[in-house]
Amino acid sequence: GETKIIYHLDGQETPYLVKLPLPAERVTLADFKGVLQRPSYKFFFKSMDDDFGVVKEEISDDNAKLPCFNGRVVSWLVSA
């Protein structure tokens, strides 16, 4: 499998796309960081919350699996 991750960088209009050679349910924050090489950023991901619906959730645990929608991951990188 392959996972497409779209990421928005510090408010830039056009998002970036990276592809990881892993199925979406196995991709972790560490996998994503390894491709990006951007150490001083906070990582937020499109996520579903039972109370609020669609939210941007910050993930900082490198072992955390990334939230996935239709085989895609959507993220926002914010300068720390």
Rank of each mutant, 00 (worst) to 15 (best):
K33Q: 00
T14R: 13
F45Q: 03
T28L: 02
S75R: 05
F32M: 04
C68Y: 10
F44P: 03
S75Q: 00
L77N: 02
Y7T: 02
K46I: 10
Y7N: 04
D62K: 00
E58K: 04
D50P: 12
T14A: 11
L66I: 07
K42S: 03
G53W: 07
C68Q: 10
N70T: 07
H8C: 00
Q37V: 11
A24S: 12
A80K: 14
R26S: 12
N63Q: 11
P15Q: 12
V78T: 11
Y41V: 08
L77H: 06
Y7G: 01
G71P: 03
V35A: 14
A30C: 03
I59A: 07
Y7C: 04
V55P: 01
F43P: 00
L9I: 14
G71L: 06
D51P: 13
E57W: 06
E25Q: 08
S60F: 10
D62N: 09
T14M: 09
I6P: 01
K4N: 15
R26D: 12
A64T: 07
K33E: 03
P23I: 11
W76I: 00
S40K: 11
S79P: 14
F44A: 05
R72L: 15
E58S: 04
I5P: 06
M48N: 15
V54E: 14
S60G: 05
G34H: 08
Y7M: 07
P15S: 11
E13M: 12
K56D: 02
C68A: 12
P67H: 01
L77A: 00
D50Q: 12
R26K: 13
P21V: 02
P39Y: 06
R72K: 14
P23F: 08
K46C: 12
L29P: 02
S47M: 15
V18R: 03
E13I: 10
K56W: 15
E13D: 11
K19I: 15
L29E: 02
G34V: 08
L77F: 01
W76Q: 00
S75D: 03
T3S: 04
A80Y: 08
P39Q: 14
E2F: 09
T14K: 15
V35P: 01
M48H: 13
P15R: 08
L17P: 01
G34Q: 14
G34M: 13
L36Y: 00
A80Q: 12
L22I: 14
K42C: 04
V35C: 12
E25D: 11
F44R: 02
K65V: 13
E58I: 08
K19E: 12
G71K: 00
K42W: 02
V18Q: 01
K65N: 10
P39T: 13
F69R: 09
S79H: 07
C68R: 01
V27T: 02
V73D: 06
H8S: 04
S60C: 13
Q12S: 15
L77T: 09
F45E: 08
L17A: 11
H8V: 06
A80G: 13
V55H: 15
D50I: 07
L36E: 02
L9T: 02
A64P: 04
L9Q: 01
S60N: 11
I59Q: 00
L66G: 02
M48W: 13
G53I: 06
G71W: 06
L29Y: 08
V18Y: 05
H8W: 13
V54S: 11
E13F: 06
R72D: 09
D10V: 02
L20H: 01
S75E: 02
R72G: 07
V54K: 04
L29A: 04
D61L: 02
H8L: 06
L22C: 09
K56I: 13
C68I: 12
Q37T: 12
E13A: 10
G1Y: 11
G11Q: 08
S75H: 05
R26F: 08
P23V: 02
R26N: 12
D51S: 13
T14Y: 00
G53L: 09
D49N: 15
L77P: 00
Q37I: 10
T3Y: 01
D31M: 12
W76M: 03
S40I: 15
Y7E: 05
T14E: 15
E25Y: 06
G1P: 13
F69G: 05
F32R: 06
V54N: 12
D31R: 03
G1Q: 12
R72V: 15
A30L: 05
I5V: 09
F45M: 01
S79V: 03
D51W: 01
G11H: 07
D51Q: 14
I59R: 02
L9G: 04
K65F: 09
I5W: 04
I6L: 10
Y16P: 01
Q12P: 04
G1S: 11
N63D: 10
F69Y: 13
F32W: 05
I6G: 04
L17Q: 15
K65P: 10
A64N: 06
D51E: 12
D61M: 08
K19D: 06
V35L: 10
G53E: 14
V73F: 03
K65E: 01
E25L: 01
K46Q: 14
T3G: 01
G34Y: 08
D49Q: 12
V18L: 12
R38K: 14
K19W: 08
P15D: 07
C68H: 14
T14I: 13
Q12T: 11
S47P: 03
L29S: 06
L66Y: 06
L22H: 04
D10T: 07
T28I: 05
F52Y: 12
A64D: 08
G34P: 00
L22D: 05
F32P: 03
A64M: 09
G11N: 13
E2M: 09
G34I: 06
M48V: 14
F44W: 09
V73Q: 07
M48C: 14
K42D: 00
I6F: 12
V78W: 09
C68W: 02
R72Y: 15
K33L: 00
D31H: 15
A24Y: 08
E2Y: 12
K33M: 01
H8T: 06
D50G: 13
C68F: 11
K65T: 13
V35W: 03
S75V: 10
K65D: 00
S40L: 09
T28F: 08
V55W: 10
A30E: 01
F69I: 11
E13S: 11
V27F: 10
N63C: 10
D51H: 13
L66H: 07
T28P: 05
L66A: 01
V73Y: 00
F52Q: 15
L29R: 04
F44Q: 02
I59P: 02
F52P: 07
G53S: 14
N63F: 04
S75A: 15
F45S: 01
C68E: 04
D62S: 02
C68N: 11
L66D: 00
I5D: 00
K46V: 07
F45K: 00
P23L: 03
L20Y: 06
G34T: 12
K46H: 11
K46M: 11
L29K: 00
T14F: 11
